[in-house]
Structures are given as C-alpha cells and as structure tokens.
Design a protein around this nucleic acid. Structure first.
Lengths: 219, 219
DNA sequence: AGCCCACAAACCTAAGTATAATTTTACTAC
DNA sequence: GTAGTAAAATTATACTTAGGTTTGTGGGCT
C-alpha cells in the first residue's frame, strides 16, 4: 500500500504481479502502461522481443501483452520461441491487421486472448487478470513439484528403486524378492524414504510418488 | 475392410470413429462426405444443429465439423449449448466469413481448429484426426472414472466416510477416535472397502480415491 | 572418514482375518 | 401400526501377518 513497500529494502516487489508489454509502437506502449498503472498493475515495456529476453524475468506471476507484428521475428514466432525455451508466461496478443489463421495458431499455442486494435480497455484488463491468475496457479503447482523433486533428489539409487515398488503397492517381502534382498533391508530403506520425502503416512508417500510421475519400469 | 463388417450383424460399427458434419450448404456436405469417406472415415451429416441433437449420438470416438453460420442458432451458440449439456465432442469450425472475435471465442471454448473456406483437404483431415484422437483419450479416462464411481456407489455411507480418512493417511486407531468407534470396527469396514473397490493394496486404494477426488471434509 | 548398502536379532505397533454376537436402521408385508 | 426381515453397523475375542525401529556388524567405494 505505502510507497516504501515497493523499495529495495525488502523483496516485497516479488509479490506483485507484472505485466510485460512488447510493441514497437511507442504510443501504444504508453497507452497500455497508463491503462495498467491506472489499476495498480506493475508494467514493464519493451520495443522488441529480444529486449525482453535480455532483461532477466523476475520470479513473479506475470503475463505478456504481445503485438503480432514486430520488427524482427513475429509475435507468433516469439511465442514458439518462449515455449521452446520452457518459458510459460501467458500471452495476450494484440493486432491491427490479424487474420484467422494467425489467431488459430496463437490460441493453439496457449494464448490467453487475442485482441484486435482498437480494443476496449476493459477487455484488455479482463484478459490480463485472467492471464495473471493462470500464471499464479501454474507457478503454484510448479513450486510444489520442484520442492518434491528436491526431496526426491536426496534419495539414493536404491531408495528410488524401492520407492517405485512401494508406491506400486508391493509388500516388503515382494520387494525384497524382486530385488534379491532381505526383507529387513527393504524395511530400513523404506524408513529412510519416508523421512527423506517428508511423508507422514504411506498414503502421503503414494501421492507424492504420483505427483512425481514415479512408476515401476520393469514389466 | 469388407462391406459386411459394417452391417448390423455385429456391433463392429461401435469401434470405428464417426465424423459428424453440420452445414446448411448441401454441396459442402457432399464435399466433406466424400473427403472423409475417401480416407475410410464414417460420416453423418446434418443440415442444422437440432437435427443432430435429435439423433442419438453413438458411444464412439467422434468429432464434429461445424459451420459457424447456421440457420437458427449459430455454430458458436451450439458449441456453448453442447458444453452446457455436458457433451464434449471436439469441434472443428469452418466458416466463409469469420472474424477474429469469433475465432477466439471458438478456441477458448475448446475447439480443435477453425478453418476458413476454402480450406485444404489435408488441413481438414489433419484436424479431424487430431479431434478424434482427443475424443478417444477423453473417453478412455471418462470410462475409467465411471467404473471407479460405480464401485464407489456400492459403498455404504460409513464406508465412504472411512475411505476418506484412510486415504488421508490416518491410522485405524485415529479413524476410530475421530468417529467414536472401536478400532476393530474400522478394520472391518476397511476390509469391506478394499474388496468393494477392488483395491489390491493401500497404494492402489489411495490412487483410486485420488482419481475420485475424495478428500476429508471435516477440518 | 563418510557415504551407501546389506543384514541380523529383538522388539513393538499396525493391519488384517475369522467367528460370533448384538444393535440399529430401513423397508416390506399384513 | 406392527411384525418381519435384510442390510448396515458395531463390538469382542483370538490369531496371523505386515510394518517399523533400534542397535550392531560388516563390506565396498571415494
């Protein structure tokens, strides 16, 4: 709320979403900046796609308002580029002279919306709110998966092997037989797995394995 | 392959996908019929949306090629209609005079593709193949969920209650305490649950509960 | 030295099964 | 309504199996 909460004193800025804008038309950049700032949204504008890639993207819910027609590679190609680089920022396209095939390609590529100039301010704001919410949710699950993966990384090879078998529902004695081990060895590994994965019950562990996409590879 | 395999002698027709076509232009209906039949796809054509709704839809992977401009309600409205009626057939739109907002609405509504007339035959076929594959997958998971739900329906109220607690990872004694029961009672219910749900292990049961979206409601 | 891995003995808790009995609930028949 | 009945729910006893921890031992690898 207060001005100094946005200062560099603390990472408070890491919590407010950002709208990125890429458009080669300076007047459009200005108009969009005003529009978004008028509703309290943080904005960052660029005149071309490479400019945005060179600035490092903050770890905040965000979206991108992207003109289809750009100097250099087109907005659609940039969308493809981002996807290839595993950057999943939601995109809202704007265009003055778009056609239907462009629109289809953009939407198939996961775009949130595709607005034709001139567009109504409210349509743009609606699209941006939707896009940021989508990004927020995506980051949420991504964070959960990343945390889980970090735990999984701490497992030894043997433990990972046994985790897969446990999650598939085998009994300790079956796992022992499958791996040529004594049952007690499996039990001990299993205890370590529970601790390392932070699982408080078998149900918990099974769900975590599910989230990690862990399945037995042997059939 | 042979003609008689399509006869009514056996429900073989239930396995081959169908392309539905709704277009008020008879020549377009004929052209599309020829196109799809030329690659061995079964086709059913209608001149208007209600005609399709009145014929009962077979339980087969299928898709719908739909003209945007229709007598009566538009293709887009029909898409909305279908969604509201919980009919999730993948749609490929075709249009002679479409615009971008129409395209966006269609794609947001889950359309597979949006082709402008005249379109290339190969583009249409690609879209149809994609759409049918999507429908096939959707039906696959829907079937699994339906089967699971049928099993869940056989559970008594108490068993459902206990299933939720088991799946959340509680021990029998904790469940007993929560419900004011003796531990032995929980064990017996639990045995019934395993049998009825066809679960061969706790891990199995947890995954099935997950698929059913079962979570504890009490906190 | 510090892991990862394996295993054993001893012990304890949790889970599951079988049998049997009682009670509650719900619904049907008269 | 009331009696009858079937399913659901509860519990007890007794027993078996599975899961899990602790402590300790030893080998292999870096």
């Amino acid at each position: 709320m207060t001005e100094h909460s946005k200062s560099s004193r603390e990472p408070a800025s890491a919590k407010e979403p950002i709208v990125f804008v890429i458009d080669d038309d300076a007047s459009m950049r200005r108009a969009l900046t005003n529009l978004f700032q008028s509703v309290g949204l943080k904005v960052e504008v660029f005149g071309s796609a490479p400019e945005m890639l060179h600035s490092k993207l903050p770890d905040v819910a965000s979206c991108l308002v992207l003109d289809i027609r750009l100097p250099g590679l087109s907005g659609l190609d940039f969308q493809t580029e981002l996807a290839r680089a595993n950057i999943h920022i939601p995109i809202i396209f704007i265009t003055g002279h778009g056609d239907i095939p462009m629109t289809v390609r953009a939407m198939k590529g996961g775009a949130v919306d595709f607005l034709t100039k001139p567009f109504r301010d409210q349509d743009m704001l609606d699209a941006v709110v939707m896009a940021i919410e989508r990004d927020r949710k995506r980051r949420e699950v991504e964070k959960i998966v990343a945390n889980l993966n970090a735990l999984f990384e701490t497992l030894t090879p043997r433990e990972r092997e046994i985790l897969a078998l446990v999650a598939s529902g085998l009994m300790n004695k079956q796992i022992a037989a499958e791996l040529g081990l004594a049952e007690i060895t499996v039990k001990i590994h299993r205890g370590h797995i529970m601790k390392k994965m932070g699982a408080r019950s078998l149900a918990d562990l099974v769900r975590k394995a599910e989230t990690l996409g862990i399945h037995r590879a042997k059939p």
